[in-house]
């Protein structure tokens, strides 16, 4: 099923393979791979040497600062929402974008639902792997839930009110 929404409103199939927690590297299928931070920590050299692109999955109880100085070889970073009400990945996203200047794709995975997408987008996410039972096509309008924003964040719909001088 097509269940990946990107910030331009397109819905696409997901080409990435997300390696589950604690799957050993030798069990990984060929192709573009997103691996948990723990595996990346252990087997970074091997991962960078294999065919296909590579990305890292950061769980909400992990700190993206661990990736400092390692962003170069990464094509994608996925931040996990174990439940949609766990808000830690919003902070991880902003730190990656604003402090660590990560420019690659930043994807929300896990319990990703329509009603949080506007917020995620503002924290710098640019793709959203919606939960399997929620068609991404129904979530496209979420990107424009609000015309403006009050506060500065990673991405602003317009100039935020508080920093706008007119």
């Amino acid at each position: 099923m097509q269940n990946l929404l990107s910030t331009d409103g397109r819905v696409a199939d997901d080409d990435w393979i997300l390696l589950e927690k604690e799957t050993p590297l030798q069990d990984a299928p060929a192709g573009d791979l997103i691996v948990p931070l723990a595996l990346w920590r252990e087997s970074r050299e091997t991962l960078l040497g294999r065919d296909g692109r590579i990305g890292v999955l950061v769980y909400s109880d992990e700190q993206v600062e661990e990736l400092d100085g390692q962003l170069e070889g990464l094509s994608i970073i996925a931040l996990d929402f174990p439940v949609f009400s766990d808000g830690r990945s919003y902070s991880n996203a902003r730190i990656l974008r604003e402090r660590m200047h990560y420019r690659g794709e930043l994807r929300a995975v896990g319990d990703v639902l329509r009603d949080q997408i506007f917020l995620m987008r503002r924290c710098g996410f640019d793709s959203f792997a919606l939960r399997a039972d929620r068609p991404a096509s129904l979530a496209t309008t979420a990107l424009t839930d609000f015309r403006h924003a009050y506060q500065q964040a990673t991405i602003d719909p317009g100039t935020p009110l508080l920093t706008r001088s007119d």
Binding site: D86, G87, Y90, S91, R94, F118, L119, A149, Q151
Partner: peptide
């Protein structure tokens, strides 16, 4: 009022 505006729909702090 400043705090009201800043905190309204704050994208990072809506799921504390």
């Amino acid at each position: 009022e400043l705090i009201r505006q800043w905190s309204t729909f704050h994208p990072e702090f809506s799921f504390l």
